[in-house]
Amino acid sequence: MRKVILSLSILALSAGAVAAKPKLRDVPRIDDAVFDVAVADRIRKKCPSINPRVVKAYALYRETRKHARSLGYTDDEIEAYGDSDAEKARMRAKGEAYLRAQGVVAGDAQSYCAVGRKEIQKASRIGSLLKEK
């Protein structure tokens, strides 16, 4: 009986630990990587003289996904985060605010290009996902 109680206690504690896992949006390493990809993607779509570094973006995707798995997130949880319309809208708003703060003017492709070139020159993670044509 004592073993059964001990086993149930351990099971309850481990279930509590799984339930206590934060949302992926609250894991800075993951959310920051998604943010950087989103901003780089926005820049490359708006600036005609900047292309994406697809291999770098894919490597970051794989690294971020691997990290999420190492924290105990399932593939389904990772997919749900990536496919969530609410998360996409949140990331879009966050990215647009960042770009505005960097001097981007909506509808002005050259302002996106200027920010993209600045990110490339800084060798930021956003810049590492971009290249000039």
Results as ranks from 00 to 15, higher is better:
residue 2 R to Y: 13
residue 3 K to C: 14
residue 3 K to N: 15
residue 3 K to G: 15
residue 4 V to G: 06
residue 5 I to W: 12
residue 6 L to I: 13
residue 8 L to M: 14
residue 8 L to D: 15
residue 9 S to P: 05
residue 10 I to T: 15
residue 12 A to K: 03
residue 12 A to E: 03
residue 13 L to E: 06
residue 15 A to G: 06
residue 15 A to H: 11
residue 16 G to D: 07
residue 18 V to M: 15
residue 18 V to G: 10
residue 18 V to Y: 13
residue 20 A to P: 00
residue 21 K to S: 01
residue 23 K to F: 09
residue 23 K to M: 10
residue 23 K to D: 14
residue 24 L to A: 04
residue 25 R to H: 00
residue 25 R to D: 08
residue 25 R to K: 07
residue 26 D to Y: 02
residue 26 D to L: 02
residue 27 V to A: 07
residue 27 V to F: 09
residue 28 P to D: 14
residue 30 I to R: 04
residue 31 D to V: 04
residue 32 D to S: 08
residue 33 A to P: 07
residue 34 V to F: 06
residue 35 F to I: 02
residue 35 F to T: 03
residue 35 F to G: 01
residue 36 D to H: 10
residue 39 V to G: 00
residue 41 D to K: 08
residue 43 I to L: 10
residue 43 I to H: 05
residue 43 I to M: 12
residue 43 I to N: 01
residue 44 R to Y: 01
residue 44 R to P: 01
residue 45 K to G: 09
residue 46 K to T: 12
residue 46 K to I: 03
residue 49 S to R: 12
residue 50 I to A: 06
residue 50 I to M: 14
residue 51 N to Y: 04
residue 51 N to W: 04
residue 51 N to K: 07
residue 52 P to C: 04
residue 52 P to T: 04
residue 53 R to L: 14
residue 54 V to R: 11
residue 54 V to M: 11
residue 55 V to L: 14
residue 55 V to W: 13
residue 56 K to T: 14
residue 57 A to C: 04
residue 59 A to H: 12
residue 63 E to F: 03
residue 63 E to D: 10
residue 64 T to M: 11
residue 65 R to E: 06
residue 65 R to H: 05
residue 69 R to L: 09
residue 70 S to I: 06
residue 70 S to L: 13
residue 72 G to R: 11
residue 72 G to C: 09
residue 74 T to G: 15
residue 74 T to P: 02
residue 75 D to C: 11
residue 75 D to K: 12
residue 76 D to Y: 05
residue 77 E to A: 10
residue 77 E to G: 14
residue 78 I to C: 13
residue 79 E to I: 00
residue 81 Y to F: 10
residue 82 G to K: 01
residue 82 G to P: 00
residue 83 D to G: 09
residue 83 D to S: 12
residue 86 A to Y: 06
residue 87 E to H: 08
residue 87 E to P: 00
residue 88 K to T: 07
residue 88 K to A: 14
residue 88 K to P: 05
residue 89 A to S: 07
residue 89 A to D: 10
residue 90 R to A: 09
residue 91 M to S: 01
residue 92 R to E: 07
residue 93 A to C: 06
residue 95 G to Y: 03
residue 95 G to K: 03
residue 95 G to N: 04
residue 96 E to K: 01
residue 97 A to K: 00
residue 99 L to M: 14
residue 100 R to M: 10
residue 101 A to D: 15
residue 101 A to K: 11
residue 102 Q to D: 09
residue 102 Q to V: 00
residue 103 G to T: 00
residue 103 G to I: 07
residue 104 V to K: 01
residue 104 V to F: 04
residue 104 V to S: 05
residue 106 A to R: 12
residue 107 G to K: 11
residue 108 D to I: 05
residue 109 A to P: 05
residue 109 A to H: 08
residue 110 Q to L: 07
residue 111 S to W: 10
residue 111 S to K: 05
residue 111 S to E: 13
residue 112 Y to L: 13
residue 112 Y to C: 15
residue 114 A to D: 14
residue 114 A to S: 15
residue 115 V to A: 14
residue 115 V to S: 12
residue 117 R to Y: 13
residue 119 E to G: 10
residue 120 I to L: 07
residue 120 I to M: 13
residue 120 I to R: 01
residue 122 K to T: 08
residue 122 K to N: 11
residue 123 A to V: 10
residue 123 A to P: 03
residue 123 A to Y: 08
residue 124 S to D: 13
residue 124 S to P: 07
residue 124 S to Q: 11
residue 124 S to Y: 03
residue 127 G to C: 02
residue 128 S to E: 14
residue 128 S to W: 08
residue 128 S to K: 12
residue 130 L to G: 05
residue 130 L to S: 07
residue 133 K to D: 15
residue 133 K to M: 12
